[in-house]
Simulated assay, not measured.
Amino acid sequence: MLSSDTLTPLVMPTRRTWQRLPRITLALGLALLLTAASALLWASTRTTIVNLGNERHLNASGLLQQWAEGAVIVMIRHAERCDSAPGPCLDDATGITVAGSQAASRVGEGLQHLGLAGADLLSSPKLRTRQTAHFIVGDTVTSEDWLEGCNAHFTEQALAHKRSGHNLVLITHDGCVDHFQRSLSVAPGQRDSAYASALFVSVDGNGKARILGRMNEPDWQRVLATRQR
């Protein structure tokens, strides 16, 4: 039998302890509410990339009207790289694959449907971007170094090259498109650009940019077929 000396005395909560419990609970509740509010505020400042391959999203984006007004910049990542794909190369190993050239041609058909009259077209000087540009427009496109640099000034350089009333088509790299999206507060998980994907951005009269959405290469044919019915 245990003696009374070996028993641990039961400590009853004092009145002061009972008074402190609601305060702790309240503090925890307020902390959770502040955390949730901060998360919602952060989310509300992020730019969401809309999938323009969805007909409803395309119509709601305003892209067609903005394009008709010459108020759009479209940034197109080069087509599939030869040095990182199993398919046959178009020719040079630093360029794109045969499949990439076909994908670029399909993107070009989509842009031609939107209308390229009066548009300014520029390409990075890298072979893979120049080849992509050639298959998109069927001709040689002027190359500029800043479309290869992909540095923190890419957004301001892109906006500086946008002429009023003229759409601007830029064939560039994933890193450049990423910099542009960063500057417009796109969340990291939405900044990935597939080969030959096109990011559409509207630019208002004050030079303020707004992302309209992204069109991935496989979606062009389906969207065009739907709109031509």
Rank of each mutant, 00 (worst) to 15 (best):
H161K: 10
K208M: 09
T97R: 09
S202M: 05
L40R: 12
E144A: 12
D174W: 13
S185R: 15
R15W: 09
V107S: 01
H153L: 13
H179Y: 06
P218C: 10
A93Q: 11
N54H: 06
F154D: 03
A160L: 10
H57I: 00
I73K: 01
V74Q: 02
I49G: 01
R56V: 14
R191M: 12
G108A: 07
G205M: 05
H173V: 12
N151M: 01
E80N: 04
L26I: 10
A31H: 00
K208W: 07
C89T: 09
R16H: 06
L116C: 06
M215N: 01
L7M: 13
T25L: 10
A196Y: 02
E69D: 13
C89N: 11
T94I: 03
T8N: 12
T132P: 01
N167Y: 04
I171N: 04
A187Y: 03
W67A: 01
R163F: 02
G207Q: 07
V203K: 05
D219Q: 15
L32F: 02
A99S: 14
S143E: 14
L212M: 08
G207M: 05
S101D: 08
L58V: 05
R23E: 02
T94E: 12
I136M: 11
D92A: 15
T132F: 11
G138M: 02
A99K: 15
L41N: 05
I171C: 10
G207T: 08
T35F: 08
L184Y: 01
L90E: 11
A104L: 10
R106T: 10
A36I: 03
H57E: 10
L127H: 08
S3I: 02
R106L: 09
H161Q: 15
S84F: 04
R15P: 00
S185T: 12
L159T: 01
Q131Y: 03
I49K: 00
H153A: 15
P86D: 12
K162F: 06
P22M: 04
A225W: 04
A119H: 07
H179N: 14
N167S: 14
L64W: 01
R214A: 06
Q102T: 07
T8Y: 00
L64S: 05
N54C: 04
L52M: 02
L111D: 04
D204E: 05
W146C: 02
V141S: 04
T35P: 00
S183W: 00
R20D: 00
L30H: 01
